[in-house]
């Protein structure tokens, strides 16, 4: 039995639905807040994810960070060193998608040279009539950044677990790889 711990940073523009996504995941799809309540700092959410077909688990320390430009600098001080990244944009806002590369740059400065596995999440898939970002375009950009792409609707509680579960699994696979490497190391 292995218990892993990962610091999962959730970033993206203001009002794209980061907090909604986190709360939906945390509450197993019982909690959606319709009225926008802006995050002004960082909110820590902890949830344990069991890895299928094993007795292992990953405790996710989810850092839900404010998207509003003027708050970002202060929030960054509380990011610490992330293990995983969840980058969120709003499918009905081309601008929020375009800003994703900024968020990648900001994040990179906190990684201290470590490679971070991550997902790109296009949220608000329920608002299909207002969609501004096509799935193929988002997918392609995600691939170019080494991110796995997911579409979710926090409002309809659709697919909100998937990005977090995939992140936990990716972290678990990485752990197994590294442990194998260490097992086969030569002496100093």
């Amino acid at each position: 039995m292995v218990k892993l711990r990962a610091r999962c940073l959730v970033v993206g523009d203001a009002a794209v639905g980061k907090s909604a996504l986190c709360h939906t995941f945390y509450s197993d799809g019982t909690l959606f807040q319709k009225n926008y309540s802006m995050t002004t700092g960082v909110e820590l959410i902890m949830k344990c994810v069991n890895i299928p077909e094993s007795s292992d688990s990953v405790e996710l320390y989810i850092i839900d960070s404010a998207g509003k430009e003027t708050l970002v600098e202060t929030c960054e001080k509380m990011w610490g060193q992330p293990s995983l990244l969840c980058l969120v944009f709003d499918l009905t806002s081309q601008q929020s998608f375009a800003n994703c590369s900024c968020w990648m740059e900001r994040m990179a400065a906190h990684c201290k040279g470590l490679q971070i596995q991550g997902v790109l999440v296009g949220n608000k898939s329920d608002l299909s009539a207002r969609r501004e970002v096509q799935e193929s375009v988002a997918k392609e950009w995600a691939q170019s950044q080494g991110l796995e792409y997911h579409e979710t609707s926090a409002k309809e509680m659709e697919n909100c677990d998937a990005p977090f579960r995939r992140l936990a699994q990716a972290f678990h696979s990485l752990y197994q790889q590294r442990r194998d490497t260490i097992q086969n190391l030569g002496p100093a």
Binding site: K3, Q81, R179
Partner: peptide, 26 residues
């Protein structure tokens, strides 16, 4: 940290073949 196959006792058993491994975050 906790991987039950790699307990912290491995640090003081005098053997470099056995090890304790961290399980995420610093």
């Amino acid at each position: 940290s906790s991987d039950e196959n790699h307990p912290p006792e491995n640090i003081t058993d005098g053997n470099t073949k056995t090890f304790w491994i961290s399980t995420g975050m610093f």
